[in-house]
Amino acid sequence: MKIRVRYFARFRSVAGVSEEEYEVPEGIKVKDLIDLIQKKHPKFKEEIFEQNEDADVNVSRNGKYVDFGEELEDGDIVALFPPVSGG
């Protein structure tokens, strides 16, 4: 099935594109998709999750905020955005 991934803010620069399509297996979850994204764009390994405690990612599926355990369906649009903290 196909998933469209959109990158926001700093992630757009990391990916080098604003959005792209992924061909993924049925039943895939957000965290599995993140793995695929990290494989395609190794730079994300430094940006997201366990590899860097200071980094973070928020995820939305079809415009709604979801957690990493959310299962995806064909045609979903998944957006990744890094929360910022400055004031």
Partner: peptide, 30 residues
Amino acid sequence: GAVEGLFGQVTTIIPGKTLRLREIFPRAPG
């Protein structure tokens, strides 16, 4: 509200009606 570079985010927390800030940003950046 929060900003960095040319990016920013805004949301309004209304206790009892919306998610808490802790729920929206569970792994808050340092």
